[in-house]
């Protein structure tokens, strides 16, 4: 879902940088609370893993593919604010080094995948964990949270390209088109994310912290 250069007009590109910045500033600031010496290896491994996963597209139907975003997955382990930092760094490296996602669209791509996907996915995950106790709640939360996070990111992306004067069609065409493919791609995201979390629950469940309010319990991580 990486928007390349040339999809968004100048006004929209700039607006999206402003919108992203409005989320970046408080998120980068709040991430401070969650980042400690103990969880640096976890943040590094998770972010590098999501980078690798984003390289690997899985086929869906009709000659189309999708790949993991990993926003919900990272937020489950680190909390939503460090997840914004992680995803933004992935997008920056992809744009600067690998030409994936245009630099003029970095604001839009960050807003979609590092902000909307992270916050919506984590919010749904947190709510479901409140409703369903135990490991079942964790896995269900990750599954549904991941699914919704991709759909909302695709909705945002559809709105952006639909509002862009470069696209010959408006949001009434671009939004349904984006949603059509991403409702399916989102199942891939949900399956991969919940499978990874299920494996971690079995092997090293202390890596998955409880949720408190709109964050994880920071002091919990008994990382060994």
């Amino acid at each position: 879902m990486h928007i390349p250069d040339g999809f968004l007009d100048a006004a929209l590109s700039i607006s999206m940088f402003i919108l992203a910045a409005l989320a970046w500033a408080p998120s980068f600031y709040k991430a401070n609370k969650n980042i400690s010496e103990k969880n640096i290896p976890l943040m590094a491994v998770l972010t590098a893993g999501v980078f690798a996963a984003q390289m690997l597209n899985f086929p869906i139907i009709g000659g189309t593919s999708g790949h993991l975003i990993g926003a919900t997955l990272i937020a489950v382990f680190l909390g939503p604010f460090p997840a914004v930092v992680s995803l933004t760094i992935i997008l920056l490296i992809q744009g600067l080094v690998f030409g994936d996602g245009g630099l003029t669209a970095l604001g839009a791509n960050s807003f979609n995948m590092a902000v909307i996907a992270v916050f919506s996915g984590f919010l749904v995950y947190a709510l479901i964990r409140k409703l369903i106790p135990g490991d079942k709640g964790v896995i269900t939360g990750v599954f549904i949270g991941s699914w919704i996070s991709v759909i909302l990111a695709a909705l945002a992306c559809g709105l952006e390209i639909g509002l862009s004067s470069i696209f010959p069609y408006g949001v009434e065409v671009t939004v349904p088109a984006m949603l059509f493919w991403h409702v399916i791609i989102a199942f891939g995201e949900a399956l991969i994310s919940s499978a990874i979390v299920a494996v971690v629950l079995k092997t090293n469940s202390s890596l998955i912290p409880p949720v408190k309010g709109f964050n994880i319990v920071v002091e919990y991580s008994s990382l060994k």
Binding site: H2, D5, N57, F58, G63, S65, G95, G99, G102, G158
Partner: peptide, 29 residues
């Protein structure tokens, strides 16, 4: 891994929008 276009690329293709020259030449495109 699939070489098919992803969801967004597919939508752009269907609607007849092509990528412009990137503003930055990435070292490992």
């Amino acid at each position: 891994a699939s070489a098919f276009p992803d969801g967004l690329e597919r939508v752009a293709e269907t609607l007849g929008v092509v990528e412009s020259e990137p503003v930055w030449h990435a070292p490992i495109p």
